[in-house]
């Protein structure tokens, strides 16, 4: 059904930290790797090693320059489906293939009933949906629905592939509908925000702003080096030399 389910008991989504993202694209490639064999299989590519490569990817990382508080910044900006609460990408679908799950709020495309009309991609202001020309259906982030509930993989792997792959911990996954969840706490603490909030789709995914340079935590001072007590004559000799030289 392409009517929206209304308020969902859970709002599963991602929190993306624009302060710590280094733009390495590990989330992009791990997403592609998992999803080309999972729910969204295949994620077709055309001319992947040639001069004009293209293909369906569910996650893209932009890099921007900007000024924040008068200071220049480079900001790496991952962009994928935000699993909005009230998105038209679901309601415009003529077949019911594009739907929002009532139980956890994940927005999915049923690849067996999608006719490939592309209207849902037209309805998304975030450019989050990509059409698969070989498969003839629309592809999008599934929040790795085939990982997060998957009892056959180790528990630490039951998060979206992009979250698992991020080397800087810039991506967090959880229930943004639960005010006591870790991700909700992170959003509250860091001032998480919506993309194009004024547009009104109510994105579930949140972004954390780059920290001002002065607020960024600094690495702790290393402990002073201590030299263990000498164990033999030679070490005692060196210790004596060290003590004389240090005096």
């Amino acid at each position: 059904m392409t009517n929206l389910p209304g308020a969902t008991p859970k709002k599963l989504g991602l929190v993306i930290d624009l302060d710590t993202c280094v733009g390495c694209h590990a989330c992009v490639t791990s997403c592609k790797e998992w999803n080309t064999g999972g729910y969204s299989a295949p994620l077709s590519d055309h001319d992947p090693y040639g001069a004009d490569p293209s293909g369906a990817w569910l996650n893209r990382v932009h890099s921007y320059e900007m000024e924040i508080g008068g200071a220049g910044r480079t900001v790496h900006f991952p962009r994928s489906c935000l699993h909005c609460e009230e998105p038209d990408c679901v309601t415009v679908c003529p077949t019911g293939a594009s739907y929002k799950r009532a139980e956890d709020g994940i927005v999915l495309v049923n690849p067996d009933t999608c006719i490939g009309c592309k209207l849902c991609s037209w309805a998304c202001p975030y450019g989050a949906r990509e059409y698969d020309h070989d498969d003839g259906v629309m592809k999008k982030c599934t929040l790795c629905v085939d990982r997060i509930y998957n009892d056959t993989i180790p528990e630490e792997d039951r998060v979206p592939a992009c979250v698992r792959a991020c080397p800087t911990g810039a991506r967090a996954f959880g229930d943004l509908g639960d005010p006591d969840s870790d991700v909700s706490a992170l959003v509250a603490e860091r001032g998480g925000f919506d993309l194009m909030q004024e547009f009104g789709y109510k994105p579930v995914n949140k972004y954390l702003p780059p920290r001002a340079p002065s607020e960024a935590p600094t690495a702790p001072e290393p402990d002073a080096e201590t030299i263990p007590a000498p164990r033999d004559r030679l070490e005692r000799l060196f210790a004596w030399v060290d003590a004389k030289l240090s005096a």
């Binding site: 900006f77 925000f193 993309l195 909030q197 004024e198």
Partner: peptide, 8 residues
């Protein structure tokens, strides 16, 4: 608005 970053 697209990026939404406060103060950018």
């Amino acid at each position: 608005e697209a990026l939404g970053i406060p103060g950018a």
